[in-house]
Every structure is written in structure tokens, then in C-alpha cells.
């Protein structure tokens, strides 16, 4: 990490990487189009999945389900809505979507030939890695303590060496169990 990493903001971090000031940048596929634009042909970038604890252990890719689509149960046009939803799940939509927004993936299992090599790399991990959910979105962050904020807070403490990852996990779990009914009494 760079000197004074405690005060490095997210845009600082992007600039440091795209200006060639850092070699490795922890990110998700959402950065692909930003980096393609900022880095251009200055240098080649690649990607590797999160390291696993020991060789041969299962790897997991975090899926951010930020764009789920659903039908309103009271809709006046159920057939039309269903038709649209089916199209959203089709290979045709997946190809359109994955190529129009490099780094964002349609939520279907169709294998799409992406024109962007980085997108292809990310998509390839899905073939052999499991999927892990976005851990604090959104219902489990709607109480006090807010699980999403807690994750940010304890992650900073872990990165500063003031907390072990185990303690961080226990803190977040205890916070969630204090108000979220399905986790209470465990």
C-alpha cells in the first residue's frame, strides 16, 4: 500500500493506478471501462481472482446483484412483463448487455463471447469459481448498526492491524444479531 494509505481516497487510488504509481489495484469488474478509458494504450492491464488460503482451495467470485428485475404482482400486463423478463434472461440480451457495458454482466448463465479481453477474463472465473453474495446489501444494513458501514469500519481496522479478521467477523455478526431477527439468538 502507498505511504499514508489511511488518507488515500477512492479517486486517489484510481489515479495512482492509472498513472502507473501502483502495480496492483483491488477492484471489481465495474472498473473495466474506467480503466480502459484512463489507461488506454499506456500499459497493458490484466486481472487475477482473489487468492485462496491454500493451493487447490475453492475460489469464490463476489456477485453484486445490483440490477435485479421483477414483475409487479398487481400488473395489468402480466404477459407482456413476462415476455420482457424472459428476454432479459436470454442469450441475446446477455450478449447485448455484456458488450454494451463492459464489466457488467447479465444475470443469466449464458456463455457470451465478449469483445473486451478483460471482460472475458472475469467471465472465465465463473467457470471454475463459486459465487459469493454481496454481503451487506441491503436489508441487513437497514438497522443500527448498519452492517455495510460496520464492514467498512472493521475493514479499516483490519488493514491498520488494529483488529484481526476473526474479530472483525465476530463484530459484524454480533452487530447484526443485535437487531436482525433471523440472526438473533445464534
Amino acid at each position: 500500500m502507498p505511504d499514508g494509505y489511511q488518507a488515500v481516497s477512492y479517486p486517489d487510488m484510481q489515479n495512482l493506478f492509472t498513472l502507473g504509481g501502483s502495480a496492483v489495484y483491488p477492484a471489481g469488474s465495474w472498473e473495466i471501462s474506467i480503466f480502459n478509458q484512463l489507461v488506454g494504450d499506456d500499459f497493458a492491464i490484466g486481472a487475477f481472482p482473489p487468492p485462496v488460503p491454500e493451493e487447490g482451495a475453492d475460489c469464490f467470485i463476489n456477485d453484486h446483484m445490483d440490477m435485479g428485475m421483477a414483475m409487479n404482482a398487481d400488473t395489468q400486463h402480466p404477459e407482456e412483463a413476462q415476455l420482457f423478463l424472459e428476454w432479459l434472461g436470454s442469450a441475446e440480451f446477455a450478449e447485448l448487455w455484456n458488450n454494451a457495458l463492459p464489466g457488467f454482466f447479465a444475470m443469466s448463465n449464458h456463455v457470451v463471447e465478449a469483445s473486451d479481453p478483460m471482460v472475458q477474463v472475469y467471465a472465465g472465473w465463473r467457470q471454475h469459481c463459486g459465487s459469493s453474495p454481496r454481503n451487506a446489501y441491503a436489508i441487513i444494513s437497514r438497522g443500527e448498526p448498519n452492517t455495510d458501514s460496520e464492514l467498512i469500519r472493521v475493514t479499516q481496522l483490519v488493514m491498520n492491524g488494529e483488529m484481526t479478521p476473526e474479530e472483525a467477523g465476530e463484530t459484524v455478526q454480533a452487530g447484526l444479531a443485535s437487531w436482525y431477527e433471523p440472526q438473533m439468538g445464534e
Binding site: 451487506a136 444494513s141 437497514r142 438497522g143
Partner: peptide, 10 residues
């Protein structure tokens, strides 16, 4: 944070 909510906090 308490009054208006913040992030996902209600």
C-alpha cells in the same frame, strides 16, 4: 445518520 438514515441505514 440517525434522522435521515445513511447508506442503507433506515
Amino acid at each position: 445518520r440517525t434522522f435521515f438514515g445513511s447508506g442503507f441505514q433506515k
